[in-house]
Amino acid sequence: MFEAITDEEQRGQVGIGTLIVFIAMVLVAAIAAGVLINTAGFLQTQAEATGEESTAQVSDRLQIVSQSGTFNQTDSQMANLSFVVAQSPGSDNIDLSETSIELIGADGQESFQIGDEGNATIDIFTNDDLSVVLTDNSERAEINLILHDPVDGSDELDYLLEEGDRLSVTFTAPSGASTTAEIRVPSTVVDESVRL
């Protein structure tokens, strides 16, 4: 029933040396598997964070509902600009005080954060808690920019916008998503209130 092996070359290796080599191979495989699992977990976490940030940069932006301004006939320039804004569809909460504005036109470039300047006011007229955070798509906020104040120039941007001028206004939400509005002042302004 059992066959005796007499040839030394046909015998299997046994002993402590073989056991040590086998254990070493198992340990190396276990360490390599641990490193791979760790790396995969790190990459998954990083991919999720990147995906959330990318989604926020696309969807967490303002939508401009209307834009208007007040023209100062005495100085022949725009005194202020008013924008009614809302959250774009699918957007998370937007803190308007941390939103930045960039003006680019014939009078140069001006950039500032709304909450840091006295020349910009925020009025959320569909929100009862008096905060400056848009939390719902139905909420509307009016952002008023004081370009030129003939009475008290302390809170003005001192930005010259005359008849026939064009101005590009970019709103950048805290997430980095931006919305641009093009302002075109009529070549002849006959009324103080101007729809832009």
Rank of each mutant, 00 (worst) to 15 (best):
3 E>D: 14
6 T>Y: 13
6 T>C: 10
15 G>M: 04
16 I>W: 06
18 T>V: 08
20 I>L: 06
23 I>S: 08
25 M>Y: 11
25 M>Q: 12
27 L>D: 01
28 V>L: 06
28 V>M: 08
28 V>F: 10
28 V>R: 05
28 V>Y: 00
29 A>K: 03
33 A>D: 12
37 I>Y: 12
38 N>S: 13
39 T>E: 08
40 A>R: 03
43 L>C: 00
43 L>Q: 03
46 Q>R: 15
51 G>Y: 13
55 T>N: 13
56 A>P: 07
57 Q>D: 03
57 Q>W: 06
57 Q>L: 01
61 R>H: 03
61 R>T: 00
64 I>E: 07
64 I>D: 01
67 Q>N: 12
69 G>F: 02
71 F>G: 08
75 D>C: 04
75 D>G: 02
77 Q>R: 15
80 N>T: 13
82 S>Y: 07
83 F>N: 00
85 V>C: 10
86 A>L: 09
88 S>M: 04
89 P>N: 06
92 D>F: 00
98 E>Y: 11
99 T>D: 11
103 L>H: 03
103 L>A: 09
105 G>R: 14
106 A>R: 13
109 Q>M: 15
109 Q>K: 15
112 F>N: 10
112 F>C: 11
115 G>V: 02
115 G>F: 07
116 D>V: 07
116 D>E: 12
120 A>P: 09
120 A>W: 05
120 A>H: 10
126 T>I: 04
133 V>A: 06
133 V>M: 02
139 E>C: 11
145 L>T: 01
146 I>P: 03
147 L>W: 02
150 P>C: 01
151 V>D: 12
152 D>C: 00
155 D>T: 00
158 D>F: 14
160 L>M: 00
160 L>Q: 04
161 L>K: 04
165 D>A: 00
166 R>Y: 13
172 T>A: 05
174 P>H: 11
177 A>I: 03
177 A>R: 05
177 A>H: 07
180 T>R: 13
181 A>K: 11
185 V>K: 15
185 V>E: 14
188 T>F: 15
191 D>N: 15
192 E>F: 10
193 S>F: 11
194 V>N: 10
195 R>Y: 00
196 L>W: 02
